[in-house]
Simulated scan of single mutants.
Amino acid sequence: MIIYTGNPFDELRRQAAGRRVAVVTDSNVAPLLSATGYDTIVISAGEENKTLATVGEVWNRMVDLRLRRGDVVACIGGGVVTDLGGFCAATFKRGLSCINVPTTILGAVDAAVGGKTGFDFRGLKNEIGAFSMPEAVIVSDIFYATLPRRERLSGYGEMLKHALLDSPAAFARFTEMTPDEVRLDDIRRSVALKERIVAADPREGGLRRILNLGHTVGHALEELLLEKGTPESHGACVARGIVAELANSRINAGLDSTVLYAAATLVRNLYGPMPATCGDYPRLLELMARDKKNRRADLLTLVELSAPGHATVADCPLADATAMLDLAADLLS
């Protein structure tokens, strides 16, 4: 259940009525929650803290707070909080109820919706996790007006994916909207596409796999940049990954070049060039090969578009992946 409201904390109280609430949040959001009166578990902000060690810290606090199965865990924060906090709720005492309150656009359109929870492990994005649907997701634009531009851009990258998966009209409309113009109705439309897909395939056995557009390359790029000490946001990496996977779609699925060039121009103007060089390809390809969606070590499972709104999942030989990376790098230069 996704609830859109101007008063997220009042709505949280309504949804959790009669039950104890423990909040999982991060060090950026925690100062905003002091008046809620809930027990609060605070993790350090940032993707670099989405680790097994942090999971252990949250579990320890849950033990200290003596949480029980009838209690509710409210994950209030961005994607790291809803992913990791949701996993901790799903596994503590074999499962506590969870309510997500995303405080970023990225969290609202992606991480907080759909029941994917988890954390990074041994340098691999979301390597450990579980499907566990939240009891509710409370979306409110009171959080988004003051987001730093970096965070708005991160959410915009995921919204680009949804527009491409939706229809030619949705993609055309999206390209006319800047990150600073994103409003609650735009978020609602983006979430609605993901809701429809998740409802049809909640455990990613078929249709839901198209939501990975841009993520095989994007996750590998995100991991590479963390290793290099030059991290970029999830959405910024996914946006570049989308261009790479659209380049693959142009090569293998006949995607019209105007769609590829329109997306590449948008991404280049907002996010800049591909932050990986030819010298990074061996490590980037190694990370892509270890993506959990792949069925074989020598094949990449990629989303291919023949046109906006027409997506399929196909296997691409790892040996051929350099071509799409080269084309994407040229388009983004």
Rank of each mutant, 00 (worst) to 15 (best):
A319G: 10
A170V: 07
T36R: 14
V238Q: 11
A289G: 06
I197G: 06
I242N: 10
I142W: 03
D120A: 10
V217E: 03
P275Q: 01
V29K: 06
R14H: 05
N252P: 04
D166E: 15
V81T: 14
D71W: 06
P102K: 05
L255S: 11
N294P: 05
P134V: 05
E245L: 10
G129F: 11
R66V: 13
A236V: 07
C88G: 07
D120E: 05
K50T: 03
N212W: 11
R68E: 14
G77W: 00
V109I: 07
A329H: 09
P102R: 08
C237N: 15
D186A: 11
R250A: 12
L327I: 10
F9P: 00
T25I: 02
L332G: 13
E227F: 06
R122D: 13
R203P: 01
L165N: 08
R268T: 02
A289D: 01
G95E: 07
P202C: 14
F121C: 13
S333V: 10
I76K: 13
E181G: 09
K292W: 00
T322D: 11
L221I: 11
T265A: 14
L246T: 03
A112G: 12
R68G: 06
F87M: 06
T178G: 15
I41T: 14
G95K: 15
D64V: 09
I187Y: 00
G272W: 00
G229T: 08
D110R: 13
V113G: 00
D71G: 09
R290T: 03
S167E: 05
L225D: 04
I138Y: 04
E57K: 13
A328F: 05
L270P: 11
Y261V: 05
L300E: 01
R250I: 01
S97K: 08
T117L: 11
R61C: 07
V243D: 00
L153E: 14
D71V: 09
D298T: 15
F87H: 09
R296Q: 12
N252D: 10
S249H: 05
G18H: 05
N294W: 11
E245G: 08
D141H: 15
L287E: 00
G157K: 08
D291K: 06
L225F: 08
R94Q: 11
T146Y: 00
S154P: 05
R152V: 02
P273G: 13
T175P: 03
E227T: 10
V63S: 02
V182T: 12
R94V: 01
H310Q: 10
A22I: 15
K116E: 04
R296F: 05
H215K: 07
A247G: 10
M1W: 00
I251G: 10
A307R: 15
L124A: 13
A35I: 02
R196M: 12
